[in-house]
């Protein structure tokens, strides 16, 4: 696994832009499923009604890796998510998510060898206002069984 080659050839290159319409129904379904009780997110009548802060973390673009990206193994898991909030997402908005690979590194853990890819999505709305930045730390394991996965 040549992580240095990945860093050299693939980092910080936008490879996907995906579009996500924000609807009241979808916000309410998400909020109910995760037990969110704050009326700003659960009550459409609230004057500040908006999507909850982790809402954009659920989205996946049209591709999760660039075309022709090296195969790092079939097995993998989600090692973590970071969401930085810049502005609200409200019903009727359309979000555009710009994707790139922001970092790559190798390490070992309870699961064995792991390659981490940091997949970054920058969300902006239809006015080109920043909404959130979501970093998704994806792990690829060429040689491990899924039941062993622990960091």
């Amino acid at each position: 696994m040549d992580v240095e080659a990945i860093k050299k050839n693939w980092l910080n290159r936008e490879f996907d832009v995906a579009e996500f319409p924000i609807t009241q129904e979808r916000i309410l379904a998400y909020v109910h499923a995760c037990g969110e009780t704050d009326p700003r997110f659960s009550d459409p009548e609230h004057p500040e009604f908006q999507a909850p802060p982790t809402f954009t973390a659920q989205y996946v673009g049209r591709r999760i890796l660039p075309r022709d990206f090296p195969m790092l193994g079939f097995r993998g898991f989600d090692a973590g998510k970071t969401v930085v909030l810049h502005g609200p997402a409200r019903p009727g908005d359309t979000l555009f998510a710009h994707s790139k690979i922001a970092d790559a590194y190798e390490k070992t853990g309870r699961s064995g060898r792991m390659v981490f890819l940091v997949h970054r999505m920058e969300f902006v709305n239809q006015k080109d206002e920043r909404v959130s930045t979501v970093d998704w730390r994806m792990v690829r394991q060429p040689d491990q069984e899924p039941e062993k996965r622990e960091k």
Binding site: T108, G109, R110, S111, G112, K148, E150
Partner: peptide, 9 residues
């Protein structure tokens, strides 16, 4: 050597 009792690492 640290956490010697931990699996794999």
């Amino acid at each position: 050597p640290c956490h010697p009792g931990r699996p794999r690492v």
